[in-house]
């Protein structure tokens, strides 16, 4: 596997079965430090299952995940925080549970990083979806992760909130955090992902840069090559039997 020796995270032959159904069919990939990797595919492709296995929430039936240098931060699709607590109380709780030496200082840092300082005393339930997602990500970052896993982070956000979110996530990657995010929005994956991992029915169909996917689409579904990328991508999946 290319660059596996220096990878921040490496997955080999991941298989997950739910009864008779195979949700993942031997997925391999590696993510480099500071890389923004987008996992894309239609609903039911296995994106959340893959991220849950990487996060250690779900155990793979076969295969292994290697994480040579440190923690994985996990940000689930639905905000995993206490809506009746304030922003600060949520951050303080998880900082304490993460065992930070100075939890209050970590909270201040996160509030600064997420630009939620002015909202620190607000009950989370009263925050907008975008701000809730920022708190959600901030909690994921409290683990001081080398790799941050984001499961459909922009779902339910309006365009302005999305733009803010991606600005924030891109800044994290620039600081060296490997960010692996799942999405079914092809345009979003192409715009923000440095590398794309295409999944369909648990199978890995493509692993490479966005431009490489465009070329693969053009090559395998020439009839749709002149149309928009999303239509061409659907044709590509169809050609691959999905």
């Amino acid at each position: 596997m290319e660059g596996a020796a220096t990878a921040a995270l490496e997955a080999r032959g991941l298989v997950k079965r739910y009864g008779e159904r195979e949700a993942l069919k031997g997925v391999d990939f590696a993510a480099q430090p500071g890389e923004l990797l987008a996992v894309i595919g239609p609903n039911g492709a296995g994106k959340t299952t893959l991220l849950s296995i990487l996060a250690g929430i779900v155990r793979a039936d076969e295969g292994e995940v290697r994480l040579p240098r440190g923690e994985v931060g996990w940000v689930p699709q639905q905000a995993a925080l206490y809506r009746r607590l304030t922003v600060e109380e949520n951050l303080l709780l998880f900082a304490r549970l993460e065992g930070h030496d100075d939890p209050r200082a970590s909270v201040e840092k996160m509030l600064e990083l997420t630009a939620l300082g002015e909202r620190r005393g607000e009950i989370v339930a009263r925050l907008s979806g975008g701000n809730q997602q920022r708190v959600n990500i901030a909690i994921g970052l409290l683990a001081r992760p080398v790799v941050l896993l984001l499961d459909e982070p922009s779902a339910g956000l309006d365009p302005r909130q999305r733009a803010r979110l991606w600005e924030f996530v891109s800044a994290l990657a620039e600081r060296g955090t490997t960010v692996i995010f799942s999405t079914h929005d092809i345009q979003e994956a192409e715009r923000y992902g440095e590398r794309l991992l295409v999944l369909a029915d648990g199978e890995s169909l493509f692993d490479g840069p966005p431009q490489g996917l465009r070329e693969a689409v053009r090559r395998e579904a020439p009839e749709a090559a002149s149309r928009d990328f999303e239509t061409a991508f659907v044709a590509f999946l169809h050609h691959r039997g999905h």
Binding site: S52, A55, G56, I57, W74, P76, Q78, A79, A80, L81, Y82, R83, F94, L97, E98, I139
Partner: peptide
């Protein structure tokens, strides 16, 4: 309901 269970039991508690 708050989706906190998986986050907590990932190693925190």
């Amino acid at each position: 309901e708050e989706n906190a269970f998986p986050r907590l039991t990932r190693g925190l508690v």
